[in-house]
Write a protein that binds this DNA or RNA. Structure first.
Length: 646
RNA sequence: GCCACCGUAACUCAGUUGGUAGAGUAGCUGAUUUGUAAUCAGCCUGUCGUGGGUUCGAUUCCCUCCGGUGGCUCCA
């Protein structure tokens, strides 16, 4: 048999006999690689390790250390789980079981609900099946054979899927008596699956449509090494520890009361103080960036929402109407129509543009009870909204400015890692192609100029215009969507908006919707989780807490507190007759950035003993020095608690 | 809304052949005057989410509704 030439990722070339398997190739490179190998990539196409390679190709051996490796591994684990489920619950019907971003799931149709105990049993069975090192093999069969095969097994969901496949040859994967319809690739043997944890059971509609039957979905995760799984589980615990709902309660930031209504946030004094600090900063920055502030009502006449199109396109998210002297009114789900009303209140000239109307506008949207989630998904929220009315020729300059503004704002809150998504024209849309092209291009240019890497979401735009969404990466590497900048070709038409151009003719302005933080509720929730409740000094509701050691320092401690307050530093005092360790414990649990202990020594030296958040004892320093240091951090919105001394 | 699980004191949670409830924390009172993450003692705390059913008797078993959690769909 003749040799084939394989080029490796490192640029080297290897000659091997044609027909060698992917595993064989991996072995020829090294035993370690062969052990870690999950699949092989041939000219960019993934293939099973136990299949032959017949032609010259550029190859790469896929291991767990890549997103594609994760996918193969998790997908194979989902098969293993389905295998185990079929053994334990032969009546369960298979639906689908893909790999997802973190782990995998498989949907089953089974009369009796799965219980947490079932998960343990399934995990055990999976370990058994993995240990048995059953080979996983691919079989290509005709569509007719595949149909017969799955009909015979009573796998009606698979039959439905096969019927919709265009190909005449169908691939199925088998491991022992288990078989699944699958494109592959898969690991060559079940023994590759080492450490598995089944995480949760959830309902999921067949094919995601609520018209279909509700199936049972089991989520899980797996890793080639137990340590990796342990790390993952530790991460889940960390996520739980940072949960903004828990921290919101512990730190007394906000609550949501059953009595006043789900999805409606009650901001407690400390949370409200943080919000106010964010808002003050937000307003200052908007003023500097040429925005005008506006305020608009919470309700508006039906005719307004008819003109805007909300009643035809957004009604399912709006609360039912109220009757005002025979006129129908609606609570606002968005601010834009009001801002447009302000624009239209007088004739605008090209000299007025761009006009930037900004409002912390509270909107209400109907969300189904099942989707509400702490601060992240609510029914009433305040958008840091603005609408920019701009002449077409200035659009690009404007977008560049907006994106730069977004980035600056987010960086101040301590986020440096962003991911941008530009969504382009969907199938159903308004506005001609040239407009879309121009606006999409402007978004790309703006992202480039701001140094933002972006991905294109082809066809993902709203029907009224393209948009860019910016996601923030938090301390745990999770992505959160906050900022959005959207073009709107629809509203200017609907409201017949105009401005008078240099040519003394009426022209249509562009409307750009934009939110930097998204909603104050969601942003706050995200901030809580990002900082695990330990906010930067400028945001912390209490910035310094003065603790007296005995009653002898009472007056001095009060004096310190008053001086701090006078300097604009949010300070509190604890003069209870408790031991210092106790008071420190409480202040530390409140995540106060600085604890100032005052005893006889400090009184004598006009000093404070500073304990930084995290437990670092800085010892005694003159009160003035502390105040200078903390004021500097606050003024510059630093995210560190490290005082610059001197 | 749908599926699963859950709902006991302000908070975290115990409470099995069905006999009207308990711990820690917090709170309050008092003692203690304390040097870097829990001083001690005493006191208080409940329509056992709601409504109904079964039963002599229900926190416990059954049903309804409300709310929460994890998902599905959607999204700031």
């Amino acid at each position: 048999m003749s040799d084939i030439r394989l080029s490796l990722p490192d640029g080297n070339e290897k000659r091997l006999p044609a027909g060698i398997t992917g595993l064989g190739i991996a072995e020829s490179i090294g035993p370690r690689l062969a052990k870690d190998a999950l699949a092989i990539k041939l000219d960019g196409r993934l293939q099973d390790l136990n299949l032959p390679v017949d032609q010259d190709a550029s190859i790469a051996i896929l291991t767990f250390d890549s997103p594609e490796g994760h996918e193969v591994y998790w997908h194979s684990t989902s098969h293993l789980m389905a295998h185990a489920v079929k053994q334990l619950f032969p009546r369960a019907k298979l639906a689908i079981g893909p790999a997802i971003e973190e782990g995998f799931y498989y949907d089953f149709d089974l009369e009796r609900p799965f219980t947490p105990e079932d998960l343990e049993k399934i995990e055990k069975k999976m370990a058994e099946l993995a240990k048995a090192a059953t080979p996983v093999t691919r079989k290509n069969i005709s569509k007719a054979d595949a149909l017969a095969f799955f009909i015979n097994r009573g796998e009606t969901y698979k039959v439905e899927l096969i019927n919709e496949l265009p190909d005449e040859t169908i691939s199925i994967y088998e491991q022992a008596d288990f078989a699944d319809l699958c494109r592959g690739p898969h690991v060559p043997t079940t023994s590759k699956i080492k450490a598995v944890k089944l995480l949760s059971i959830a309902g999921a509609y067949w094919r995601g449509s609520e018209k279909n039957k509700m199936l049972q979905r089991i989520y899980g995760i797996s890793f080639p090494a137990k340590e990796k799984l342990d790390e993952y589980i530790a991460r889940l615990e960390e996520i739980k520890r940072r949960d903004h709902r828990k921290l919101g309660k512990d730190l007394d930031l906000f609550s949501i009361s059953e009595e006043s209504g789900g999805g409606l946030v009650l901001w407690h004094p400390r949370g409200a103080l943080i919000r106010k600090t964010i808002e003050d900063f937000w307003r200052d920055e908007h003023q500097k960036n040429g925005y005008d502030f506006v305020y608009s009502p919470h309700v508006g006449r039906a005719s307004l929402w008819e003109t805007s199109g909300h009643l035809s396109f957004y009604r399912e998210n709006m609360y039912s109407s109220m009757d005002v002297e025979g006129q129908e009114y609606f609570v606002k789900p968005m601010n834009c129509p009001f801002h447009i009303m302000i624009y239209k209140n007088k004739l605008r000239s090209y000299r007025d543009l761009p006009l930037r109307f900004a409002e912390l506008g509270t909107v209400y949207r109907f969300e189904r009870s099942g989707v509400l989630h702490g601060l992240l998904r609510v029914r009433g929220f305040t958008q840091d909204d603005a609408h920019i009315f701009v002449a077409p020729e200035d659009m690009e300059t404007e977008v560049v400015q907006v994106i730069a503004f977004v980035v600056k704002m987010l960086r101040t809150f301590g986020f440096d890692d962003f991911k941008a998504y530009i969504a382009t024209k969907p199938e159903k849309s308004v506005g001609d192609d040239s407009k879309w092209e121009q606006a999409t291009q402007a978004l790309k240019v703006a992202a480039d100029k701001a140094g933002l890497a972006y991905e294109l979401d082809e066809g993902g735009g709203a029907f009224y215009g393209p948009k860019i969404d910016i996601k923030i990466k938090d301390a745990l590497g999770r992505l959160w969507q906050c900022s959005t900048v959207q073009f709107d070709f629809n509203l200017p038409e609907r409201f017949d908006m105009n401005f008078i151009g240099v040519d003394n003719q009426a022209h249509r302005p562009y409307v750009i919707h934009r939110a930097l933080l998204g909603s104050l509720e969601r942003f706050f929730g995200m901030l809580i989780e990002h900082y695990a409740g330990a906010f930067p000094v400028w945001l912390a509701p209490v910035q310094a807490k003065v603790l007296s050691i005995t009653d002898r320092q009472l007056d001095y401690a009060k004096g310190v507190r008053d001086k701090l307050l006078a300097a604009g530093i949010r300070a509190e005092i604890d003069t209870r007759s408790e031991k210092i360790g106790f008071k420190i414990r409480e202040a530390a649990m409140d995540k106060v950035p600085y604890i100032l202990v005052v005893g006889d020594k400090e009184v004598e030296q006009n000093a404070v003993a500073v304990r930084e958040r995290g437990g670092k004892d800085l010892g005694a320093m003159p009160l003035e020095a502390f105040m200078t240091g903390i004021s500097d951090l606050i003024k510059n919105k630093r995210t560190t608690t490290e005082l610059t001394r001197g």
